[in-house]
Design a protein around this nucleic acid. Sequence first.
RNA 1: GCGCCCAUAGUUCAACGGAUAGAACACCAGCCUUCUAAGCUGGAUACGUAGGUUCGAUUCCUACUGGGCGUACCA
Length: 562
Amino acid sequence: MYLSLLKEKLATLLQVSPDDFVYPLQPDLGDLSLPMFAAAKSSGVNPALLAKTQAESLQVVPELKNLVSRVEAVGPYLNFFLEPLSLVAGAINDVSREGNKFGWAETEKPERIMLEYSNANTHKEYHVGHLRNLFFGDAVTKILSANGYQAIPVSYINDFGIHVAKTLWHWQRTPAYVQQTGPQGRLLGECYSQAASLLGDNEAAKAEVSETMKAIESRQGETYQLWQETRSWSIAYFAEIYERLGIKFDHIFYESEVIEEGLRIVEEFLQRGIFVRSQGAVIADLEAYGLGVMPIIRSDGTALYPVADLALARQKFRQYNLQESIYIVDVRQGLHFRQLAQIFVLAGEKFQITHLGYDFVTLKNGMMSSRSGNVITYDQILEEAISRANKEVSARHEDWPVEKIESTSEALAIAALKFEMLKVSADKVITFDVDEALRFDGYTAAYLQYTGARLASIMRKSTIDSTGADLSNLNHPKEVSLALRLEQFPEIVIKSGQQRDPSIVARYLFELAQVCNDYYHEVNILKAESSLAAARLALLQSMRQVLSNGFSLLGFSYLEEM
RNA sequence: GCGCCCAUAGUUCAACGGAUAGAACACCAGCCUUCUAAGCUGGAUACGUAGGUUCGAUUCCUACUGGGCGUACCA
């Protein structure tokens, strides 16, 4: 890689680390910069003076001849102006050589990391909050893969919790529901909302729900059969969502499949004194670790969430030989995972479990809540997004066949939703606003897609072959800064992997797209003299490749036209 | 009460302890017989308060203010 090799060379020469280099705020300051503060401190020399003497001594170093055209001291900074032609050629050659692996790391023995996300509940609705989790998890998985990890995406679906009993309780007492046949995943969500709202503080009804839960847990009888049937509806519904959004899991775990093993572990931990009985319930007393109390089994004997988690973690580490298991779950469950981790420590299990939290999605008029009906479901938002995209696409392409308009609208809509969820860092609450989220200008997926489509369009219209083009034609300042930016992509992939933060990739892509737009706006490609046009097309091809590689990390496709 | 997170422009967000704190939206003024105007160019506005550490703090520490979340039988 041109830039990383260059940095290594400079770092060796200057006896610093390649990571010590920064990029100057303004391009006129240089392409690469080394702050002299650290060196100044250890040598006891004034940083500005140090920069000045270093700059002077570097002028005559022969190894830098074809790499650096100028070294300049600006205050305490040592600024490097890279040799433009080598940089441009280096970038284009790197990208074209590596193609869709540009930015991807290679590892001999990849670490195995499991990522658990999209932990939906059956018998409940799927809403925009779930989408943040799903898209975030998918992007982190892809980014870790690009960083050379063996990333294993899994989902854990809770098909056996009290919410299921609530839904079925209401379902059984409502004739309109009882008559239903066939897969009705969405209807179950509706039924759950009604149930939750009906239950409220009604103690008698809650007792009935408790009975329903026990009937399900008995794994026999009419209610259990209804559970089996309705469960399959929800599962089919989730599969349909994942398919449509282009999300794949290596495996899906179900609470109902691990709960028995979990209960055995509870017995084991009770005997070992890790869990104790208290007030009729089974708990883990973690007060000594500042983690309060974790309830495990309710006083009515039914299982709580951690029971399945115990079995699930064991199963994951034993079956998949993991180095790490990441749980991508709402930050509000932070305590839960710290408690869980502490329990495994007490049990002597060496499980490296990480809670990768992200903040929740709320609405302008308050927290999403099934009970109050203040919720935007997946179906609603996707339909709205597609319809808005369709309007935009139709207005611009009256000549397109309906299928093309529809497929383009769908791709735009899905990319818009993904980008909207990924562009802000995980520690920010997203106040979801439909109009804001489905905009098609500014810092949005549509802007990125538009830039890509423009690049593709120019390339389509060209009859010139850019292979073997004379890249020394590319000496426009914008071409040089574009090349530098392209070379930074692998660093961005590494950074977002280390921080497990897709928003870093999102931001980079947006900035790259801005530079691309600026470039082809200012510079004519097709009308340039043919050898120059060929060289510019080679640069366009590189931009297109990097955009496309970045899109794939965020989980959306590259549109040729829009 | 205790714990975690957040606070930057009118709004939504950026900024490994370092150079003149960047974008986007909205607003105003320009640019389509010219590779897709979903675009481009120009314009005003911001680090919650008080201390501390440091050569240097939006960034680290402490307190405070404001907001959110969690804290034994929700997930």
